[in-house]
Amino acid sequence: MTGMTNEIKHHLTDALLMGYASGNLPEAFDLVVATHISLCDECRARLGSFEAVGGALIDEAADAVDVNDDALESTLRLIEGAPKDPIRIRDTAPEAETVFPEPLRDYVGGDLDAVRWRSIAGGVKQAVLPTSRDATVRLLAIPGGAAMPDHGHHGTELTLVLKGAFRDDDGLFARGDVEVANEDLHHTPIAEPGEVCICLAATDAPLRFKGILPRIAQRFIGI
């Protein structure tokens, strides 16, 4: 169990929730959305309303397509042949709180202590997670008081805070908060003093760093 975060101030946009509801986001974005929703009932409910649109579309009979004559029988055979869906026993008393919600743990192969970090610059560490190639998602660890390299980007960038906090022109971002940035926004997130800030960040285009990292280094790092 991850535990809910009640003080979330920065949420997902309607376009992202609709993209997730319709199954049209790159996998990297799906991961950020699913991780935020694990922490945020407000967006979970908003997602439910967008999924209801899909439900209403599917319910309209106008262009239903006949299934095979024996479809019901073969489905019942499928059900009989399948292993029983195990009844998951839920812990009533939550065990030790984890930093990463379940969908993220699935990609990391564990919680925060299982991440294989690589240093990039200025004390910042990252770990790229494997997803389909239309977008990339990485974990970032920014030391307290340190700045993320200043960059602009071409497409959409999502940054979800999992631990610690950062601040930029849009305000303070703490656990559960997600920043949705587009190409017009040039921001310089700075981790709040003290604790290291752990973020999950997805981009659908390579970042263009200004300053700190020379272009040549970007290719090696894979940012």
Partner: peptide, 11 residues
């Protein structure tokens, strides 16, 4: 169809 994994929110 899209052949990609689908991360789902924690139940």
């Amino acid at each position: 169809l899209r052949r990609q994994r689908r991360p789902e929110p924690e139940d």
